[in-house]
Design a protein around this nucleic acid. Structure first.
Lengths: 231, 231
DNA sequence: AATGTTTAGTGTAAAAAAGACACTTAGAAA
DNA sequence: TTTCTAAGTGTCTTTTTTACACTAAACATT
């Protein structure tokens, strides 16, 4: 039923690119793909692809994410739409970008993928990127830094169970500052209402409980920015 | 040089829609256009239009804004990109939306426009809107409410000179709460560093000074979200 | 088994920020 | 001139933020 397009207007290609953040060995990392074809063959780039006719940009991004990481139920949200007329040498391409937070431990390099080279780079050691992906990356990093200050997205980078110390390290890696342990715990336990498990593991917080507690806030956020998706 | 498009992919139409906020008579208002053609003929809609081949979506939005309001140097920023496959009955249309803050007093209904009916509606009395514009509008309103809490965008709705009382009214209209006069002044004068003019007009704050003072913050913001544009 | 090393866990005091609250003065309108 | 509306101002209380140091347990090393 998605019949004849009846507008007489230029029709740009529309793609999505994803800035996928992970956290590993006390470093914030980002997933990059080595391009196998021109233009920018051999350069590193953000994973992305064309939006199909029967899917939203969110669905396209979700598809990309699962293709690249094999992960499902990932936190992601729309970042920005880039539309400079010369951002792709092949012609007019408008790109809707997303940023995602994943748990690297769950990540298994997708075998049998189209032989693309995928690697996690520490955000401090990003190589030269194809297209305008550097700008996209910087915007994503800025967004993440801003967001973590008032929304409990840090946990998305960790496994279901994590210690408060680990969570603090995530904050420290993203914000690039040292935090006071006691103040961090005080604040996180008050404003973010993490739930701690049994007495034996008092320091282990639980992500599911955490998300549950944040239902309302999450809901607002989901409506307005972010999405969880289940493939 | 924007030669042959060489992708073999569906090419959606790309449009921009703008949620233009104004402030008048103690009310937050939004500019709507009555549609002159099908679909949704006669319904109210957000101003918007197609993105041309040689312009970015920002430029398209800026063009729309100036066409609709005749204003230049308007504050606006990208809001969200909507891409539901059935959001336009005519076919696949992806819309990059923007929200803008203007000073209604400077607004002159653009004469000789293509006979479109344009009107400011109080945000509390929005009629049924065409397409998915209600969703867009709600998202813009939510963004504005969030944004005003930590970025000094309130002044954008006022003229160059304004009283602190007027600024407070803007905050009250947007946040839908009553604020204490003394606490508001204390806070605004500390964190937002408004500059007051001569002794005679002690209560009149000045927007230019205000913007100047906020250079750094503005700059960051401009880089990451918003734009001022000069037609 | 003993030792050293790392991480978990805890409280208090000081400083800063936010919130509650009422009257006087000046200018505009009647 | 009187009345009405908006401007202007300070203090006290509560809440939030920040700075700061030691003990206990788990783990790794020898």
């Amino acid at each position: 039923m998605k019949q004849d397009y009846c507008y007489k207007h230029p029709r740009p290609s529309v793609t999505t690119d994803c800035v996928i953040f992970g956290y590993d060995q006390l470093q914030l990392k980002v997933l990059l793909i080595e391009r196998g074809i021109e233009p920018y063959k051999g350069k590193w780039a953000l994973p992305g692809g064309f939006v199909r006719e029967d899917e939203t940009t969110e669905q396209a991004a979700a598809r990309e994410l699962s293709e690249e990481t094999g992960l499902k139920n990932i936190f992601f949200e729309q970042l920005y739409t880039f539309s400079n007329v010369d951002r792709d040498p092949r012609g007019r391409v408008i790109t809707v970008t997303y940023f995602a937070l994943v748990n690297i431990e769950n990540f298994k390099p997708v075998a049998g993928d189209d032989a693309k080279n995928a690697r996690w780079f520490p955000v401090k050691e990003i190589p030269k990127l194809a297209f305008d992906h550097e700008m996209i990356f910087r915007k994503a990093l800025y967004r993440l830094k801003s967001k973590i200050k008032w929304q409990p997205v840090g946990v998305e980078l960790l496994q279901d169970k994590f210690t408060l110390g680990e969570l603090q390290s995530v904050y420290e890696a993203i914000l690039e500052i040292k935090l006071d342990k006691r103040n961090f715990r005080k604040k996180i336990l008050k404003t973010e209402v993490l739930i701690q498990l049994d007495e034996k593991q008092k320091n282990v917080a639980h992500k599911a409980a955490y998300l549950y507690k944040f239902d309302k806030k999450k809901y607002e956020q989901l409506e307005n920015d972010g999405f969880y998706f289940e493939i």
